[in-house]
């Protein structure tokens, strides 16, 4: 087992653990804590996969913005920040569905041969060249979607509706 694999293994265990904890803890604010760690952990995995730009992006967008946004959402919908949300019982069906999906995914993708090597031509410059040339339409579309989402979000939260 190589060092990379060892590191990946450790990070994967942390990811699964924090993901589960985020969903299972009773305190919503603790959830934010765990999901923050989860995002940082995934960022580390990206660095491991020789994708530092994405790693930084993950840190900035997810571990930074999204986490804060979620925390903010909890704060404005709660009278007291530390209040417990009654989690409903965990039924057999959801667990079964989750497990079966897991098995199928492993079965479908796990049979692929080989393993990844770092991209030889990798550089942030190459990525940005790609993004703003070949993939530019997608970027533009993303911009439009964001604009629409912005308008939609403002419409949803503006005062005096009804």
């Amino acid at each position: 087992m190589s060092l990379t694999e060892l590191a990946f293994f450790a990070l994967a265990v942390i990811a699964v653990a924090t993901g589960l904890l985020a969903l299972l803890v009773r305190e919503l604010v603790h959830t934010i804590l765990w999901i923050g760690i989860f995002f940082v952990d995934l960022s580390a995995i990206y660095f491991l996969l020789e994708a530092p730009f994405l790693g930084v992006l993950q840190l900035g967008v997810y571990a930074g913005a999204v986490t804060i946004l979620l925390l903010f959402g909890i704060m404005v919908t709660r009278k007291r920040i530390f209040s417990r949300d009654a989690a409903t019982g965990v039924g057999a069906l959801p667990i079964a569905l989750a497990v079966v999906t897991f098995v199928f995914l492993i079965g479908a993708l796990g049979q692929l041969p080989g393993s990844a090597v770092p991209a030889a031509s990798y550089s942030v410059t190459a990525l940005s060249t790609l993004l703003f040339n070949t993939e530019a339409p997608y970027l533009l579309l993303l911009g439009l979607v964001m604009l629409a989402a912005l308008a939609g979000a403002i419409y949803l939260v503006r005062e005096g509706r009804e």
């Binding site: 190589s2 060092l3 990379t4 694999e5 990946f8 293994f9 994967a12 990811a15 699964v16 995995i45 491991l48 996969l49 020789e50 995914l105 492993i106 993708l109 796990g110 692929l112 041969p113 080989g114 393993s115 990844a116 090597v117 770092p118």
Partner: peptide
């Protein structure tokens, strides 16, 4: 960086 098997990542 050494290689990382497909199975590991798919599992995660």
């Amino acid at each position: 960086m050494t290689t990382l098997p497909v199975g590991d990542l798919v599992a995660l």
